[in-house]
Design a protein around this nucleic acid. Structure first.
Length: 545
DNA sequence: GCCAACGTTGGC
DNA sequence: GCCAACGTTGGC
């Protein structure tokens, strides 16, 4: 391939060369210009020449050998890592002072497969390291033509610490930014931090760096997107019907999307990633598709789904609330053959969370996180310095989306189990009983037919949110009943007060007369008779009011 | 900000 | 080397 040596600096953008396909373009690595490069439909903006690509592959291969063990979750143990010949590899005892050693001194089980920082192979390139072999490392003089050199020339009074672009380690540029920097124990103290700061995508990656559920470090570049426990993760086969499956070559697709079957995408990961913004809107196609389909199936919660062009409304008549999801994307996925019980739970829980947020007075801001601080144990632990740099501003919700507590069994979660125990130990108002085996909700029911609250059920949901259903009719969320009690029933006293309050009400007569009951029926009234909404309904002559 | 497209990684 | 699928980019 002919090389064109153009004077520096030069634009890095490709130049059209008369045809749409072939361009004159500069290699992002060696900065040499090449003619006749074909991009096709590729959107490459950092093109590397064949030599640089080969160099990169070789470097990657070498690093892969050395770093086996950098990813203990995937490769096993640190003990297998490293070249075996460098000074660090020859050290046989842990230093006892590094972050790993200190943490392990407090907890012998901590990161049992993580290696003492001082014993990590020196040949594994870290962010602070230059490879010492590439063109950039071997160059002795500044080019005086790159943007950094020009900056230095034009601003001699300013101490510009950035290296000449052509003297930067190419392997580091190629590789370490995204791959190894995460593992660098001393990444605070190196000159490439400025570059990293300019790369929001990298910073984003760094925050996402995490360990798996066993506390082991995951790939610094690739996240483990599988919790391994949810219904989706346990799904072994592609559905073959969703858009991602249809894209796969084995299903005759063109391999353009290259994504995992929608029905196999980890629910925990998807929700963890998307739910914080969900209260306003979510367009995660995985969640939306599943909610859209499973919400329909969640009849026990009377969830309704209304779709209108680009908007999806998931309506919960139970509390007269809805989630509005805009910009629906993704093709419809069949769920006919799937067990939908799990998503019923998830869907209803999401709706309930939304309900809770709407119901909470503005003076009292409650977020789902508040009730789930136990997630601390599962919050991401990052290695070495990253531990100290955990981003407090980025809450990581794990427990609230934990699927195991609700997964198909219908059992109560631990909080509700404990609460049920407390309720069973206390005398409740007459004929109110705590029902057993009613997961995921804890239910209290008025057993007496003679009670004014006969056939009334208090549902205490995961998160201790509650709603009341009378003879199958949900008390609307706008009802004063909900204003008189905390959004979450956190004590037995809260429950008793609620029951007493309920007993002070009467059931709207409209509940017994479907033909005369308003769709806006208030269900509970304080003075007997019909509620104000049912009063607006025309009553047939001769009917027994 | 979203998402189609695709370079790339990591398991096998 | 193949393949599944993760992560990033650039157009919109």
């Amino acid at each position: 391939m002919p090389r064109l040596s153009l004077p520096m600096p030069a634009l890095e953008e490709s130049e059209q060369n008369g045809t749409a396909e072939k361009s004159v373009v500069r290699c992002h690595g060696c900065k040499v210009w090449f003619a006749g490069v074909e991009f096709g439909k590729s959107k490459i903006n950092k093109w590397h020449c064949a030599d640089c690509r080969a160099s990169r592959r070789a470097f990657n291969k070498e690093q892969k050998v050395y770093k086996v063990g950098l990813l203990p979750a995937l490769h096993g143990s640190w003990q297998n890592a490293g070249c075996g010949t460098c000074d660090a590899c020859k050290v046989t005892e842990n230093c006892g002072h590094c972050t790993i050693c200190l943490l392990r001194s407090h907890d012998p089980e901590f990161g049992s497969s993580w290696k003492c920082v001082r014993r990590r192979c020196l040949r594994v390139l870290r962010k602070s390291d230059d490879c010492g072999m590439c063109q950039g490392c071997c160059r002795e003089d500044d080019c005086e033509g790159c943007s950094v050199c020009l900056d230095k020339m034009h601003n001699p009074d300013i101490d510009i610490k950035e290296k000449c672009l052509l003297r930067r380690c190419m392997n580091k540029l190629f590789y370490s930014f995204q791959k190894l920097v995460h593992c660098s124990p001393d990444y605070k103290n190196n000159d490439t931090k400025k570059l990293l700061i300019k790369k929001p995508t990298f910073i984003k990656q760094k925050k996402k760096k995490k360990t798996d559920r066993k506390g082991q470090l995951l790939s610094s570049r690739r996240q483990n997107r599988k919790c391994g426990e949810c219904e989706s993760c346990l799904q072994k086969d592609d559905c073959g019907k969703c858009d991602f499956c249809q894209d796969k070559p084995k299903f005759g697709g063109r391999n353009l999307k290259r994504q995992k079957c929608r029905w196999r995408q980890c629910l925990r990961f998807a929700m963890e990633k998307n739910i914080p913004a969900f209260h306003r809107s979510s367009n995660n196609p995985v969640i939306i598709e599943r909610m859209k389909q499973e919400a329909v199936a969640a009849e026990y919660e009377k969830v309704e789904v209304q779709q209108n062009q680009d908007t999806l409304l998931i309506v919960s008549p139970l509390r007269e609330t809805f989630i509005k999801v805009e910009q629906i994307n993704g093709q419809h996925c069949s769920s006919d053959e799937r067990n939908s019980s799990h998503m019923k739970n998830e869907t209803s829980r999401l709706i309930k969370e939304e309900t809770a947020e709407r119901d909470v007075p503005h003076t009292e801001e409650i977020t789902p996180l508040d009730l789930n601080r136990s997630i601390k144990t599962e919050e991401f632990i990052t290695e070495t310095d990253d531990i100290e740099e955990a981003d407090d501003s980025t809450p990581v919700i794990m427990e609230i989306f934990s699927l195991s507590s609700y997964h198909t069994t219908g059992d109560l979660d631990k909080v509700l189990q404990e609460f049920m125990g407390e309720l069973n130990e206390m005398p409740l108002p007459a004929h109110w009983e705590v029902l057993a085996h009613t997961g995921p909700n804890l239910q209290l029911v008025q057993r007496s037919r003679l009670s004014t609250m006969a056939d009334t059920v208090i549902y205490i949901q995961p998160g201790l949110l509650f709603h009341v259903i009378v003879k199958g009719h949900p008390v609307p969320s706008s009802h004063e009943l909900y204003n008189n009690h905390p959004t979450r029933l956190t004590t037995v006293d809260d429950v008793v007060e609620l029951i007493c309050d309920l007993e002070a009400h009467q059931q709207c007569v409209g509940l017994l007369k479907p033909r005369h009951r308003s769709s806006e029926c208030r269900v509970l009234v304080t003075c007997g008779g019909k509620c104000e909404e049912c009063c607006k309904m025309p009553w047939l002559a001769g009917s027994n009011q």
